[in-house]
Every structure is written in structure tokens, then in C-alpha cells.
Design a protein around this nucleic acid. Sequence first.
DNA 1: AACCATCCCAACCGCAAATCC
DNA 2: GGGATTTGCGGTTGGGATGGT
Length: 335
Amino acid sequence: MGHHCCSKQKVKRGLWSPEEDEKLVKYITTHGHGCWSSVPKRAGLQRCGKSCRLRWINYLRPELKRGSFSEQEERMIIDVHRIIGNRWAQIAKHLPGRTDNEVKNFWNSCIKKKLIAQGLDPKTHNLLSPHQSTSKNNHARNDLHIYQEPTSIFSVNSQMKDEPMNTSPPFITLPPPIANTTSTQIHTPFHEPMTIPNSHDYPNLAWTVKDQNLQVSFDFASRFSIESAPITSPPIIPSGLGFLDENLMWGSCGVEPFELPRQEEMLQQQREKKAQEAYEAEFDETNKMKGGGQEMQTGSLFNSSNFDLDFVESTMSSCGMYCNVSSMDQFAWDF
DNA sequence: AACCATCCCAACCGCAAATCC
DNA sequence: GGGATTTGCGGTTGGGATGGT
């Protein structure tokens, strides 16, 4: 069984020796890695390029943080995993100095067990049914105050990921939003506490908003937010669309959950106004055509047969947001 | 002390996406 | 455009470390 990248050479496998580490570090710090498949030869190592890459990324990079995970890190992993599942590389991006492998190992060896002990299914974060969890486990759940009972939307999310797309996917249709009556202060890692309208109508709604510079997830149930990159452009959420991962989009309760950093405020207002105008203009022009002539009403459910998903994508992209709805079969839309 | 079971994590594997030519 | 190569990812494994008997 050979390696594609180095089938001719005989390659060493298994644990790396300190000498090999030294060679690799020395080579990469002076020359950079370049093409990984050429690294072993140039660095004088009898390894395959893939192995070198892995060793560097997971162990030798100077920016790596070693040692055990902090409580905040653990919490972050659980929170993000709840939304995006086993996407370790994505999760690791929220934890500076940690690798996907490290996060995955930590999950498998530690967090998974904790969740099970707390009566939660580590895959779905749903409560385990009584026959799945022991009485001892149920008892342990009493300690659990940070994990809310998981939401329907997460169940839907995981089902959609697991099921082939040619089956009829589960979906939710959100009722029309009710006027906001109260508001909630939430803390974000990137600016001062913000006020958002409460989401009483959709207490379990979660979403991820993405653009090139920002990825924020917000879960109304557990009230957390995360940041993966500095904000340099404003998040704009036209007409209350919410995202769950890049492939899933759900109508939201029609609130814009983010304020911008003060220094961005002016710029943001301009962008938002412009984007909103563009969006409205485009919508006015095309909604009848694209929407199959149907009147779009709050809470309407659309699918690929009566609505042009490209239109959604282009609309979102005109607002500077990344969105891939091609795998979606249907979604709800609030106006 | 010896044996065994379990845990943990570095490393491997196969696959898919991205990139190159 | 398409085959070859490279890169990146998630699942899995092997073996050393640790704990229990």
C-alpha cells in the first residue's frame, strides 16, 4: 500500500523522532513548506509529504497552543458543534492555536462522554430518551444549567445532513413574526453589549450569518455568539433571513441581531441603505417572476419549484453575504 | 510484580475538492 | 476540458500510558 505522493521512495511511518522534527522545523522555517510533496526530499526526511504536512500542522507549528483545553474552549466546541456538527476544521477556527485533530480528539475522548453523562446525545445534542440514558445519567443532568433542551431546528438540521436529498426533507414554516415587545442584551466578543429584540415567537431559533469577513452564530436558546474573524463589513440580514450553516437557511423572526462596532457605524449605514435599496429594487422587479407569480407573504414557504434559488443567492450576494442554497429543497421566508 | 482493560492522542487512510498542467 | 497531482478533511487505528485487580 503506497502513498500517491511518494510511491517510489521507501517512507518511514509511525511516530516522529526529535531528529526528524528538527529537520522539518529547520527546513520550513527557512524555506517555507512550498509544495508538500517535495518537502521530505528537500528536508532530508524519509517521510511522505502528507506525513510532513500533518506533523507540521498538528504539532510543530510555532503558533500552536499546547496543554489542556480551557472551560471556555470546551464550551465553544460544544456550542459550535451543536450548530455545525462534526466539522472539526471549522470548529478549530474558533479556537486559536488548536488544530482540528486536537479538537476532534478532545471531543471523542472527553466531551462526548460528558454529554452522554448529562443525558444528551452527542450527535444531535438532543436529550437522550429514557432507554438510551441510564437513571444515573439522568441524575447527572441536574448539574446542567448551561445546556438548553435542544431545539427543533437542530434536529431538522441534522436530519437534513444525514438524509439523501432526494427524500422529502423535513422543514419548518415559521409563523408571521409578532411585533417585538421586549429586548435582550447580549454580549459579543467583538464590541459592546448589543440590544436585540427578544425572539419570543421563536425561542429556539439559531442562525449563522456569513460573509467574507464575518461568521457569527447566534442561538436564541442558549444566548451565545461567536466570532471567527474581525468584522470589516456589516452583516446585513434582508427581510429576516437566517442561516444555519452555509447550506441551510431559515426564515428568521425578522430581527437584525447585530449592531456594528462604532467605528463602522457610518460606513455600515451607507452599505446597508445601498444594499437594502438594491435588494428592494431587485425584489420588486423579480419577485413575481422568480416567485412563480405568488404573492410573498410573511411565513410563506417556498421551494425550488416555486422560487428561484439563484435569485436568493444573488440577492444575498448583493448584500455582501455568502450563501449557498443550491442543496436546499425548501425554505421559509419572512417579509 | 504481572497481567489486563481502558484511555488518549499522534498518525494514518481514504476520499473529495482544489489546483496544476 | 480533463487527467494528474496536491491539499484538506473527517474517520479510524495503533500503541504507549495509565489504572485496576
